[in-house]
Simulated scan of single mutants.
Amino acid sequence: MRLLLVNDDGIDAIGIQALAKEFEKDYELVIVAPEGQRSAASHSITLSKPILVKKLDIPGIESKAYSISGSPADCVRVALDKLVEEPVDVVLSGINLGLNIGTDVLYSGTVSAAIEGNLYKIPSMAFSCEMGKEPNCFETAAKHAKSIFEKVKEDLIKNNIVLNVNFPCIKEEDIKGIKVCKIGGIVYDYYFVENKNGEDEITLAIEGRHKEEKEEETDRFYLKEGYITVTPLHYDLTNYELMKKVKNWL
């Protein structure tokens, strides 16, 4: 089985390297990642300038690896069009440095890269891990990512879907299990801090307050309880329930 591994944190990120080391033991792997940090790039693609592609050797990893100057979605597009000659069976994205839960999935380059794979009719999985004090979080997450993948891979390929997987940053023995669940609500209450540079110019710095999850049975709720969460996603944003009503408006 041939897997394409991408991310949004960059080719040198601990998460993608932990995932690569775990998956290349049993699968053919090609790694294509941004040259630097591209978090919150969402589903942006590069249109106005050329994309620089570099072949790299990553210490401790045997798989072919490339960095590109584009976005996470560009990584998938460039890989499938130019870098991987044989068909790709599954796109893996991550492991992101930080959770992608609730409305984070709208801004996430990690999730968007997985969805980009799905646009090419390739089933995909996005992996993200909570940032915390547990030192082996990403190694633990990579092991569970592979275990989950091996359980779902046959059905994943048959159904051509995207799975969004999040891991708590806790000791392996403290993980309670896996919950398949919906995404939660708004994760942060963002606001801007204003600084005046002069009479006609200001600088705005974004700050964020983390909001508690009040609704049960969501990804945010279960992660706080010590579970790994899995949420199936799709990119069709059409609100089918409202189509007839909008037709009547017109």
Rank of each mutant, 00 (worst) to 15 (best):
V180Y: 15
E212A: 13
G184N: 07
C129Q: 06
A145R: 04
V193Y: 11
L106A: 05
G94C: 03
L233N: 07
Y235S: 15
D9G: 06
A205P: 00
T238N: 11
A33W: 02
I61M: 03
E62T: 08
L19P: 07
A145H: 03
I68K: 04
E35L: 03
D9E: 14
A13G: 14
G102A: 07
E154M: 06
Q37Y: 12
I170M: 04
N195G: 05
Y190N: 08
I178Y: 12
K64W: 03
F167G: 08
E217T: 02
L242I: 13
L52C: 01
A79R: 00
I122T: 10
Y120S: 13
G98I: 04
I68Q: 07
T110S: 15
L83C: 10
L156K: 09
I61G: 05
H210G: 11
F221N: 10
N166K: 07
S147W: 10
V78Y: 05
S67I: 02
K146C: 03
E22N: 04
S63I: 04
L29H: 04
Q17R: 10
A41V: 00
I206R: 15
E225C: 04
I178R: 06
V6G: 10
K143F: 11
F138C: 09
G102H: 13
L99I: 11
C137G: 15
L250W: 06
F167T: 06
L56D: 05
L4H: 08
D104P: 00
S112N: 11
V187K: 13
V90C: 12
G15Y: 00
V187G: 01
G184R: 12
V30W: 04
Y107F: 14
Y107G: 15
K64E: 09
G102I: 14
P123R: 04
V6I: 15
T231P: 02
D174I: 01
E173I: 06
F221E: 08
L163P: 09
I16H: 02
S48N: 13
F221M: 02
M243D: 15
K54M: 02
E134W: 15
Y188M: 08
K54Q: 06
K21W: 01
F192Q: 10
R38G: 00
I115R: 04
H234Q: 12
E28N: 08
V111H: 04
N96F: 01
D26A: 09
S108V: 05
K171D: 08
S93K: 14
C75Y: 00
L106F: 09
E22M: 02
E85A: 15
G198L: 10
A41E: 03
E22Y: 07
K121M: 08
S93N: 12
A114Y: 09
I14D: 05
N7P: 13
T231H: 10
I178D: 02
G70L: 04
R2E: 11
V90R: 05
P123E: 12
I16D: 05
A126I: 06
F221I: 08
A65I: 04
P87E: 13
I183L: 14
Y66S: 05
I11R: 04
I186H: 03
Y222M: 09
V88P: 12
I61S: 05
E24A: 01
A13P: 01
K196V: 06
D155R: 09
I95W: 01
L242Y: 11
S67E: 11
I228G: 09
Y235P: 02
E213T: 13
C169T: 00
I16K: 02
N166G: 11
A113T: 06
M125Q: 05
D104Y: 14
K179V: 10
G94I: 00
E172A: 07
Y190L: 08
